[in-house]
């Protein structure tokens, strides 16, 4: 495993986890890429409506959520590194920290949905909110799947060794994808004017 952590540039090429997860990640990213482009296109058909509806969102909560996912991703990076060094107890603590940040994202998203609901806003309010609920809802399903994956890895830490690294890499890669999709959803839904 020395080569996997060495800083040398000419190391052997390595795709973390297994090829299957990367095909899945790529497929998801292509679908979300089309979501992003569709949003910009439909926004241009009714910019005044999109701007007025966007102004009713709570961007502060979205910033906190972005920071939570970024922090969660950092913990996952450190956890994978710990597993590679066979420090599974440390990996377990880091994955628990990552899971809590991810759970915090879900809680804040629910607070945000409730806030909107209290203002009488729903999926049918207008086109902006249709995209808002559709995109954030599909993303939230990904967050929940990622949290289930992280929980499985936390349980696995009880018996895992460095030889189990690929399983951790698969979970980590999926979790980073959940993070990066939100990184583009955040400016598109909350910031683009």
């Amino acid at each position: 495993m020395a080569e996997a952590t060495s800083p040398q540039a000419e190391r052997k090429a390595h795709l973390p986890g297994e090829a299957g997860i990367w095909l899945f990640i790529l497929g998801d990213m292509i679908i979300f890429g089309m979501f992003f482009v569709a949003f910009i296109y439909y926004r241009a058909q009714a910019p005044a409506l999109f701007d007025a509806s966007q102004a009713r969102l709570n961007a502060d909560l979205a910033v906190v959520n972005t920071l939570l996912l970024l922090t969660s991703s950092l913990f996952v990076v450190l956890a994978v590194e710990a597993v590679r060094r066979n420090l599974v107890a440390r990996a377990r603590r880091l994955l628990m920290a990552a899971w809590l940040c991810g759970a915090g994202f879900v809680v804040i998203k629910i607070v945000e949905y409730r806030e909107k609901s209290a203002q009488g806003i729903n999926l049918l309010t207008d086109d902006f909110f249709m995209y808002y609920y559709m995109y954030t809802g599909i993303h939230l399903v990904h967050v929940l799947l990622g949290l289930a994956f992280l929980a499985w890895l936390i349980a696995k830490c009880r018996t895992a060794t460095a030889a189990d690294t690929p399983s951790f890499e698969v979970g980590a890669s999926f979790w980073h994808m959940v993070d990066l999709l939100w990184i583009m959803l955040f400016p598109l839904l909350y910031l683009v004017k």
Binding site: R11, H14, L180, I183, M184, P187, L191, V192
Partner: peptide, 26 residues
């Protein structure tokens, strides 16, 4: 401002793919 925030998001995603997802070694 809009073009800037889109470019910043793309740069952030590139960093996540490259370093957190370790695609720089893929």
């Amino acid at each position: 401002a809009t073009v800037s925030v889109i470019l910043i998001a793309l740069a952030k995603i590139r960093l996540i793919i490259w370093y957190f997802m370790e695609i720089r070694h893929a």
